[in-house]
Structures are given as structure tokens and as C-alpha cells.
Design a protein around this nucleic acid. Structure first.
Length: 155
DNA sequence: GCCAACGTTGGC
DNA sequence: GCCAACGTTGGC
């Protein structure tokens, strides 16, 4: 069982949007970045816990807790020539891009802001989210980091 | 709106 | 294989 943090721009797909999906479940985002793809394809497993994070917004913050509701599966949009996510180099036999479904478990009453998380950088140690120039949209979160971040909620 | 950081593309 | 140009991400 692993933990992850995934980013979503609330203007595109917010935690409330996820809450309104059937079973509060939907695929998370058409990733087109290899580092992120590798995490999805190689390491994400059904049942993994997921921080749902709002990026590129007024108050960047973790706004919900979700779980992987599926293992990784090929992104069908990569094969659709009419899709903006079409990739001619992806094939049915050798899919290049993958999706994972996430199910929202709970929306946080009080979001855990990036600002607050940064204030605990020393305790958290290395975390791509608070690394300078970070642009990774999915990243692993160590159990210790997960627990620590969760504890910030009560504070 | 600005801009730093980073990934990708394409000419050579 | 190098690297400049360009596009995107995402905090501020």
C-alpha cells in the first residue's frame, strides 16, 4: 500500500467535480509526462491512498483524500485521432499512456494549504511538492509524510 | 499578469 | 548529440 499526491486544477476538475461523479470515482487526468506516466503505470495499485491537491488556484492546497479505485489501464484517448490527447505513437498493442481511477473518500473540512505544508518542510523532508520549480503532477508520499501532513489538518 | 522552471521539439 | 526556441506548469 502506497500513498500519492495528485494535482488537479480546480478550474478544470475540482474535488467537488469528483464528488459528483458516480461512486465519487473517475479517472485522474490524461497525463502526458513520462515521469508521471511511470508512477502510474509501474507503481500505482488499487487501494493506494491519494491526496487530491488543487493547483494553479488562489490557495493551492490538499483538499481531499482519495484512493486508487483501479490499477493502471491504457488511456483510450491516446488512440482517438479526434482527441486532443491523441498520440500517434501510442498503439493498442503498446500503449504509451495510462490512467488510474480514483475514488474520493473524504473532502477535507479544512484544506491543507501549500503554504502550511511549506512551513513544515524540515519535518517533511524531501517532497517534490515543495521542491523549487516542481511541476510533477503525481508524486509518491512516504507513510511518515502522509501521517505528518494529515496531522496538520487538526492544527 | 508575470515569470521561473522544466519538458519537448527540431535544426544542425 | 547539442542546444535554442517554444510551450506548459504553477506559484505568486
Amino acid at each position: 500500500m502506497k500513498q500519492w499526491l495528485v494535482k488537479s486544477e480546480p478550474g478544470v476538475f475540482s474535488v467537488d467535480d469528483l464528488a459528483q461523479c458516480p461512486n465519487q470515482t473517475r479517472f485522474w487526468k490524461h497525463v502526458r509526462n513520462y515521469q508521471a506516466r511511470n508512477f502510474i503505470r509501474d507503481d500505482m495499485q488499487i487501494g493506494d491512498r491519494v491526496f487530491f491537491y488543487h493547483s494553479n488556484t488562489d490557495i493551492p492546497a490538499i483538499v481531499g483524500v482519495a484512493e486508487c479505485a483501479s490499477g493502471p489501464y491504457p488511456d483510450p484517448e491516446a488512440l482517438n485521432p479526434d482527441s486532443r490527447y491523441f498520440d500517434p505513437k501510442s498503439t493498442r498493442e503498446e500503449p504509451r499512456w495510462f490512467l488510474v481511477d480514483i475514488r474520493l473518500l473524504s473532502k477535507l473540512n479544512q484544506p491543507i494549504s501549500l503554504k502550511l505544508i511549506k512551513q513544515h518542510a524540515t519535518e517533511l523532508g524531501d517532497l517534490p511538492l515543495i521542491r523549487r520549480g516542481n511541476r510533477l503532477s503525481v508524486m509518491p508520499v512516504a507513510t511518515r509524510q502522509w501521517d505528518y501532513i494529515m496531522s496538520l489538518q487538526a492544527a
